[in-house]
Design a protein around this nucleic acid. Sequence first.
DNA 1: GCAAGGTC
Length: 859
Amino acid sequence: MKLVIAEKNIAAQKIAQLLSDAGKPKNDKVYNTAVYRFTVDGEEWVSMGLAGHILAPDFPDEILFDEKQGWYSLTEDGEVLPADVPDGLARPPYESKRRPFLPNGINIKGWKVESLPYLTWSPIIKNPAEREIIRVLKNLAKKSDSVIIATDFDREGELIGADALSMVREVAPDVPASRARYSALIKAEVTAAFDNLVELDENLADAGESRQYIDLIWGAVLTRYLTLAKFGGFGNVRSAGRVQTPTLALVVERERERRAFVPEDYWQIRGMGATADSEFKISHKTPRFTDKAAAEDAFSHVEHATTGTIVEVSKRSRKQQPPVPFNTTSLQAAAAAEGISPARTMRIAESLYMSGFISYPRVDNTVYPRSLDLEGIVKGLSSGSPALAPVCKKVLAGPMKPTRGKTETTDHPPIHPTGQGDPETLDGGQKKLYNLIARRFLATLMGPATIENTKLSIDVAGEPFTATGDVLVDPGFREAYPYGLKRDEQLPALAQGDVIDVHDIKLEAKQTEPPARYSQGKLVQEMEKRGLGTKSTRASIIERLYTVRYLKNDPIEPSQLGMAIIDALHEFAPRITTPEMTAELDADMTRVAEGKDTQEHVVDHSRALLAGMLDALIEHKDDLGEAISDAVTADAKVGECPKCGKDLVMKTSAKTRGSFIGCMGWPDCDVTYPVPSGVKVSPLEGEAGVCPECGAPRIKCQPFRSKAYEQCVNPKCPTNFEPDLKVGECKVCAEAGRHGDLIAHKSEKSGKRFIRCTNYEECQVSYPLPARGKLQATGETCPECGAPIVVVETARGPWRICVNMECPSKEKKTTSRGRGAAGSKTSAAKKTTAKKTTAKKTAAKKTTTKKTTAKKSAE
DNA sequence: GCAAGGTC
């Protein structure tokens, strides 16, 4: 039997399909792992997929260092054994200007600043990371008479293959092994690769392993150092790494630019133009006046103007080209613009890929291979998604010339829908991403959009004004792909000499804006541009920076802690803070791969560079600890104590582990505030962070998967609730000839807010209220149902509602205002909706599972 | 308790 070892399951499956003599390969399982059995020229073959790297590098357990005997380990009875370490590490571990100050017997497993120099020079072992896969691999290897490594054709692939082979060698030391190198999972490539088997490239694998070692050594040493400089308790690791630290530095650098930015004043003159049946924006031909006097002079001419004359009408049409196919980075950027973070995009994409909706999601390629059945996919989409059917029909009728991106690789096709599966079974996030991918795919097969731009030149009291409007005259690809499309701005049909009304002309003082913060999508693109990380790692690295609290918010801001970390590393270990470390590492690895340098030399050189920085780092440990401590306190600050003026900070209760806000003046000052549970809370900065009503801090609350809101932390503050506010009079009571007032209440127990009539016993009139937002009475009643109208101050501004949830006006609002009105549903109505959604989801899940199972057994 | 790289 021949054993084919691929990097991942899909590759193992594809290879089996492409090499199999006749008919489909047989799906089989060895201990729950999928393997594929087939025959080649009558010979029995089996292929299996790994799960990427199956071994993980780590520092050995229980290895110690002694000045005289070097590295050693202790047996269980305490016997000293020389450790099996590579020659290069037999040297004194730490070439410091000082003599090593440590006692003998340093254990590198303990997190101690004193052991960091030894960690820098520690040997590295590789531990099994995928025990199940290794078990299957060994099981099959024992039964095989030859083994073919068919992992991806790149540096990491070669390393993954070499690691797999080392596991095979443990059970089959003499089995012949060879390597198949294919760069695309298509018949011609794969058969050619298996017809021309080569040897595993040990140098290339060594290069990959050097990368692993250097990343681990630098990452572990600096992470331990930062964590220990000011230990913040377990769960408060301050990490550093070759990719994450330069990425953080990008964000910090942008923030510094913003802070150093000096805004410049400018002035704008803008107003409204109107014809009998339409209104449009007009602005002075000089878009920005930098001279205040000139702006005021121009404004004085038009301030009281009521009419303007059209001087010229010009029309220009421009074409917008359809987008190029998605690779990982462009998908992440497009999804980020739709509010899905890169990390979440990858989690959802993985699930869509695993259930057969989309192609493999980790790709650099942006050119569809010739072998891809574009027409078949469009047909599949057409029958699977009713919403896409009309546009699919158009695509099928057209010439279907796909666009091409700049990056052409042959490993996988660009990310595209498979045309399989029923999109109705997907959940919210999946559906959103699937639609983006499906619509992008269709757009790449369509023609350009044509936008007609109309420009009006208008004379207003001798001053030149303009108005512009963009109208999509031929949607082209936009019919499939509306993402990021600006709304039409239609100007009325006007001709030279026509006179229009003008009004509301204003002189506005403005200031230039600092450079924008990175969005998560932009940061992923910037990382790619600078060679930081790979398509598979960038999203998770950004996410990591959020979990260690170096970053916050979106657009991305660095925390004080993040800035302190960059400052410290910039001063004492600058190499880790720039993309150059990655560039130099790449150059080193190329030399190792070419056989011009060795793993030992390259890794030792890197160890020496790190060791050279340790002296200064250790010397300044306490300074850094203080800086981190100050930064953490500053990050926790939510405001100033209204009672004693000291800082109010987020604290964690030792007893309940819940969060609360407390005064730094404790125990002298006892001011505390509760913090809503189940939401992510962050302080608001500047004026927004202080409640104008009561002086307590205002905070931003981010509930899981719903809109963030802001509120004052003081539960007794009038901004949280106006108790016993009269919002109107009871209509039912009035009809019955008595008087009843409608009063707003808040339940002490549940915290729910509602309106109830003072004669509730008799009329039973009560209305629910939204859970948050300051309430104002208007004195008005709803024209549709006669219930009172109130204003609720929400995060998105004031919101007028009729308190009667059964009011007929609600239906209209739901359609016209979308989310805003949806929030006005009664809790009962909400419950029904929630139930429906859950039921739908459960049904959807069941269907998906059924389908997948059905599909699997069919294969 | 550390990184970054694969992929589940």
